[in-house]
Design a protein around this nucleic acid. Structure first.
Length: 597
DNA sequence: CTAGGGTTAG
């Protein structure tokens, strides 16, 4: 490895100017080795308190993720000014520590340093909820910080990220503004689009005095996110000019609505692709389960100069997880290991989730154990993975270890814990954990938690109790819950309750013939053939079709797909022979597979 | 130093 040439401060230039220039260069390309040298030289020259050098040093350090050093530089300055505080605030935001950014703000006010426009710009970026934006808004009103459009524009943007209530506030700010620019309109339109108020967004778009590509792309994104690809494509064709974002947005839309062929046609014909474009297309293939195409395209991307980033890895891993594409997930894992010595928490979490969903618990476990710093998501993903693969006890052990290591469980943790109890048949423990959510952790159970408890009771054969929980809970039961109860009726052959459940399911999804098939199976198990015939008649009369079952498996990077009664596979004779053998074996140990009618 | 596209646990 070649070491960079040592840096010497020339004597003919003022040292301050020299360091300023060097640090400015470092902002463009972060080089830790060079930065360390400059850091040392600055201290040697006693310039680390210089009001022009110190902010740039903090900024450069934060880009290299050396936050302890950045804070250290800040602490050594005797009397910091607003500019220096702003730099540290932004440094914390860059390293996804919005809480620390707010701490700096508090200290600043404590020591009497007056915040300026920039302070509020950065803080608005750090806000992650309506409350914090409102707090900043109050400050702005009190000290009247509206000398330029940057502050109100950022305020609209921050409010727009806070859901429906936030958009209302954003509109109020927008309405009272006497002067607006392009960014004002674009931020407001983006907020309306995010809130799903597409009509109002379009109205504003039509009204605005001038539009740029961001305006067009924002509306385009609105149509895409609402699934209206007809309007999206119409707009795409009408646009005065298209850039890589416009193309990527439309490709994303087609991929998400399932038309990957159309997405690929646009992908192949667009002038310039970037990392996001490739990510969208590869994830699109993966989400549809098209492993060969996704892997092929991933290989093609690796041949370009583009270096996949964390966003690319997370997106493709999540798509692999959804479709159970272990081969693709492993390929991405290999390229992560090749490209960086240590993988960050978010990417490791995505790996754990992918391996769990693809059934490779061993690999998930080793990623989990080798992580440098785990967060709540890591624990939740691993607990849930163990739970749904039948390792209920191990999942609960991990839950206890997580608490011992100082992590407070959240609502997602309890989904995993309750599933663990449900799958391991630990009915009593499950109920105990459910009650402890509120009493010990102050977490209000949501409909998913009730769903877990109903599933837990149903599987345990306590059907009437499950039914009572369903009636007493503060939510309207959804398809998932009724479905789980129907499954429990099948498991314990309760035809009477199944009829009741089915009536509810028909109201919610009248076209799902599969539910009648389940009912028919319950009657068949009881030998009530008249009711079987009746259920089958009702099944035929449903409007919808019963989707034909299919499954697939990856073996040595080959992809094999099977449909019902499929005989197209070259080894299908052998496969059916093996299935018969398995069935006979299962019957011997007293398990009767459900009758497929 | 303000705005747009891909992102983890149910």
């Amino acid at each position: 490895m070649q070491m960079p040439a040592p840096i010497r401060a020339p004597t003919f230039l003022s040292k301050r100017r020299f360091f300023e220039q060097k640090l400015a260069d470092l902002q463009k390309c972060t080089d830790l080795n060079q930065l360390k040298q400059i850091h040392a030289l600055i201290y040697k020259s006693n310039l680390h308190e210089d009001p022009f050098v110190a902010p740039k040093l903090i900024s450069a350090l934060s880009l290299c993720r050396k936050m302890e050093l950045a804070v250290n530089v800040f602490d050594q300055v005797q009397s910091p000014n607003a500019h220096l505080c702003n730099t540290l605030i932004r440094a914390h935001i860059r390293n996804s520590e919005p809480g620390k950014a707010f701490e700096v703000f508090c200290e600043m006010r404590w020591s009497g340093i007056l915040p300026d426009n920039y302070t509020y710009l950065f803080l608005l970026k750090a806000c992650s909820g309506l409350k914090s934006v409102k707090m900043i808004h109050a400050h702005l009103e009190k000290y009247n910080f509206y000398s330029d459009l940057f502050v109100p524009n950022s305020l609209i943007d921050a409010y727009s990220k806070c859901g429906l209530m936030g958009v209302r506030e954003a509109k109020m700010v927008f309405d009272v503004m006497e002067e607006r620019d392009l960014v004002t309109y674009n931020s407001m339109i983006s907020g309306l689009v995010k809130a799903g108020e597409l009509k109002e967004a379009k109205k504003l778009f039509d009204e605005m005095p001038q539009k740029d590509r961001v305006s067009w792309n924002t509306i385009l994104d609105g149509y895409v996110k609402s699934g209206d690809m007809v309007s999206a494509f119409e707009l795409f064709e009408k646009m005065p000019s298209r850039d890589v974002v416009s193309w990527s947005t439309v490709i994303f839309g087609y991929a998400k609505t399932g038309d990957v062929e159309m997405a690929k046609v646009l992908f192949d014909n667009m002038p310039v692709k970037n990392l996001v474009t490739w990510t969208i297309m590869i994830s699109g293939y993966a989400e549809k389960g098209l492993a060969r195409e996704a892997i092929g395209l991933y290989g093609q991307m690796e041949k370009t100069k583009l270096q996949p980033d964390d966003g690319t890895f997370v997106s493709i891993l999540s798509a692999s997880a959804e479709s159970g594409l272990l081969g693709l997930g492993k390929k991405v894992h290999r390229s992560i290991t090749k490209s960086r010595p240590k993988c960050c928490t978010v990417v490791s979490n995505a790996l754990i989730d992918m391996y769990c969903k693809c059934g490779s618990l061993n690999r998930a476990w080793s990623v989990f154990n080798e992580m440098e710093s785990k967060d709540l998501v890591s624990w939740n993903a691993m607990i849930h993975g163990l739970a749904i693969h039948g390792h209920g006890q191990k999942a609960l052990h991990l839950f206890n270890r997580m608490k011992r290591e100082g992590f407070a469980p959240d609502k997602v943790t309890f989904i995993g814990v309750l599933s663990a109890c449900s799958h391991a048949g630990l009915v009593k423990d499950g109920i105990r954990y459910f009650y402890s959510m509120e009493s010990d952790y102050r977490i209000a159970p949501e409909i998913e938690h009730y769903g877990c408890v109903i599933d837990l009771l149903g599987r345990g054969g306590r059907l009437s109790e499950a039914f009572r929980v369903l009636h007493d809970m503060p939510f309207e039961p959804n398809v998932v819950i009724w479905g789980s109860l129907l499954g429990a009726c099948r498991m314990h052959n309760d035809a009477k309750l199944a009829e009741e459940v089915l009536d509810q399911l028909v109201k919610l999804v009248p076209t799902d013939a599969g539910n009648f098939s389940m009912l028919s199976n319950i009657y068949a198990a009881a030998g009530d053939w008249g009711s079987v015939a009746n259920a089958r008649l009702r099944m035929r009369n449903t409007a919808g079709e019963r989707p034909s079952g299919a499954s697939s498996i990856e073996l040595n990077d080959e992809f094999h797909e099977f449909k019902v009664m499929d005989t197209t596979h070259p080894k299908s004779d052998k496969i059916y022979e093996a299935i018969d053998g398995l069935n006979q074996h299962l019957r011997k140990i007293a398990y009767v597979p459900s009758l497929v009618v």
